[in-house]
Design a protein around this nucleic acid. Structure first.
Lengths: 220, 220
DNA sequence: AAACAAATTTAGACTTGTCTAAATACCGTG
DNA sequence: CACGGTATTTAGACAAGTCTAAATTTGTTT
């Protein structure tokens, strides 16, 4: 069983190695975790001893298969808790990260299963990022900004870019939430605003600024 | 800000000092926390330095006002999370303690406020123990076993003594949960069973064994 | 009051993770 | 290819909390 520090390191390395799984520099990890390079140097050595990372002196660090599984599992927990905080406890999308950073370290597989079920098996967190399943698999469904779509296209809201209090309150007020459907009805070149159909029932007009901040996936 | 170890010590001391607030022995704390007396001895000294406990060598430890506030706050968090686990995630009442032990250390006042609200401001945890309010105050409403009541009395279910899986599943199946009302309609001496009215609508018969395991408070 | 057992404290060591300061390796430029 | 600067690692120290083993205190019993 890992300490929460171990989990933080693995998560940081996962994040930094990106889709191409490049080796991550000691300094980058230090930066990400707000710690010193010397501490990281010590720590990755220990993680390597435990088989969680591959580490070659002066050359950077990558996750082992096992380390990656753990990282993905922590990310799963983090994102599920974020959904909980927004959907159930009505937190603003800008307040949740810090709390989820703590909740992600709670140890109980059953808790996460039940939470997942309670939330209706969400596929994305409130920022639109995909939630890995139990096995650590996830589908990066392609993320678009609403104003990249064409007239007639249907989409699902999967997150926001800008998550200021005000913006979130606005979304709330028009009953737009994660999973809501948005269909593009019309586009007005003169101010780049959009006429849309929300949840298959309400017509609205979105300014360019609003549309730009809505992350959606194309439906079907 | 306290570490979670500090919170565990304060909670243990609170629990052990009981209603009369007696001094707690080093050995008792060690036992409660599954640690060694020497560790406790070290630790209470540090807690005393921080003003969280009053400690006199060889004489035992009591909580300071501040230490008690912290302990009560941790207990509040623990019990609210227990309610969440049972009411929202449908955990059995026997599985929640261990998970709540972790959740109670999450730091965010706002989280607890929102959780409290989400749960409908419960007054008791699933075991029937009172949940302190934000200020650390709580009302110990008197706890009875259902079979201590007399015919005609009305009560509210506040917890169970025996929390085996089977028993909990049984309660679930008859829609009996925390806060449910139970009125005593009749008592049968020959087998000590009770006829009751659950939630003001369903008549049921409880065996003595069942009745004995239901903790209730008298209504009004 | 002396002696003994139990409870408690002290001393010294260990683990995890962190830091600063110093040493070393790597790499691009001239 | 040597130089200098940056990245990285090493060395040594520290804080929190724990442990074992030894020393001390307490309190009970005679």
């Amino acid at each position: 069983m890992q300490t929460s520090t171990t989990e933080d390191y693995l998560k940081a390395i996962f994040k930094l190695s990106g889709p191409s799984k490049e080796g991550v520099s000691t300094n980058a990890i230090a930066e990400e975790l707000s710690t010193k390079a010397s501490s990281v140097s010590d720590m990755v050595k220990k993680l390597a001893d435990k088989g969680l990372v591959n580490y070659i002196k002066y050359q950077g660090t990558t996750l082992s298969k096992e380390g990656e599984q753990i990282a993905l599992h922590v990310i799963r927990k983090h994102r599920l808790w974020e959904v909980f905080l927004v959907e159930k406890l009505k937190f603003g999308w800008d307040e949740i990260h810090e709390i989820a950073e703590q909740l992600e370290h709670i140890k109980s597989a059953k808790l996460i299963d039940k939470l997942d079920e309670h939330l209706g098996y969400p596929k994305n967190d409130p920022h639109g990022d995909p939630i890995p399943n139990k096995k650590g698999e996830f589908h990066t469904l392609k993320k678009y900004k609403l104003n990249d779509l064409s007239i007639g296209e249907k989409s699902i809201l999967i997150g926001v870019s800008e998550d200021s209090k005000d913006f979130l309150r606005y979304l709330d007020s028009i009953d737009l939430k994660l999973g809501s459907s948005i269909e593009i009805l019309d586009f007005f070149q003169f101010d780049k605003s959009l006429k849309v159909l929300v949840n298959q029932k309400t017509e609205r007009t979105f300014s360019e600024l609003v549309a730009k901040n809505l992350n959606v996936s194309k439906e079907k």
